[in-house]
Amino acid sequence: MTHSGVLAEVDWNIARNVFFYLFATIQVIAAIKVVTVKNIVHAALYLVVVLAGVAAQFILLGAEFVATTQILVYIGAVVVLFLFGIMLTRANLGADADLDQDNRVPALLTGLLLAGVLVATLLRTFEDIEFPTETRSTTARVSDSIFSQYIVPFEAVSVLLLAALIGAIVVARKE
């Protein structure tokens, strides 16, 4: 390997780390905002930040097709659906003190305990296993895989989506 090749690899690794920690910090802050903020519309908009951050992590992992799908399905459709849900249930669009349960402290303890156990276990199990430094585009392999090995689950998911669509209409329509 040439000297410049080594240098480029090191640069790439540093860049990946910098962007990982940048996106991860934004994501965690936005996720905490989603579960604590008093305004329900702001919670939906913070959810957009979390979902976009997940898409950015997918791109850093070389999974650009999943990242695109994430943006199209989540930010394009799911968040709009949430906003519709907020409007249709005529929630208070301003600040609302009534969004939280009374048992916030046990919930916080549960969350912290879960995070502690998960992080401690992960750190012990996967101590310092390194990622492969190169990531390459996988979209062609994903499509090959979906339409050969996973064709039956793929068709099942399309039927499931149709069933969910009809089910949602049946449940939500007026008599």
Partner: peptide
């Protein structure tokens, strides 16, 4: 770059989500 970076991030987001499910009433 460690595998654990992603796994720990996912664990923290998971715990935040669990807190949200337990603590929200809407």
């Amino acid at each position: 770059m460690w595998l654990n970076q992603y796994l720990v991030l996912a664990a923290i987001l998971f715990s935040i989500g669990v807190y949200g499910v337990l603590a929200r009433r809407n």
